[in-house]
């Protein structure tokens, strides 16, 4: 299932440590993969149904 969060509250993605920190947070929620777009300031997450991603922002679809 795909989830999308605009203007997410996430670790700074300008560093590799920030990428891995976000990955750890998302995997702990059950994410199977994810991507962050700088231009759109959007986080896309792939994972099982009913993931609780509220700590990152408002899920627009999923």
């Amino acid at each position: 299932m795909d989830y999308r969060i605009k203007n997410p509250t996430i670790p700074d993605q300008s560093t590799g440590n920030g990428v891995m920190a976000l990955d750890a947070q998302l995997r702990a929620k059950g994410a199977e993969g994810w991507g962050y777009s700088f231009a759109d300031d959007t986080l896309a997450v792939i994972g099982p149904p009913d993931m609780d991603l509220s700590q990152f922002g408002v899920v627009e679809d999923g």
């Binding site: 993605q13 300008s14 590799g16 920030g18 990428v19 891995m20 976000l22 990955d23 199977e32 993969g33 994810w34 991507g35 962050y36 777009s37 700088f38 231009a39």
Partner: peptide
């Protein structure tokens, strides 16, 4: 395990992420 990525265009950040295990 998974692979992390950072994609750039002309040196500017485009995207980050990681894929399936």
């Amino acid at each position: 395990a998974k692979v992390y990525y950072r994609v750039l265009k002309n040196g500017a950040n485009v995207a980050t992420g990681s894929g399936n295990s």
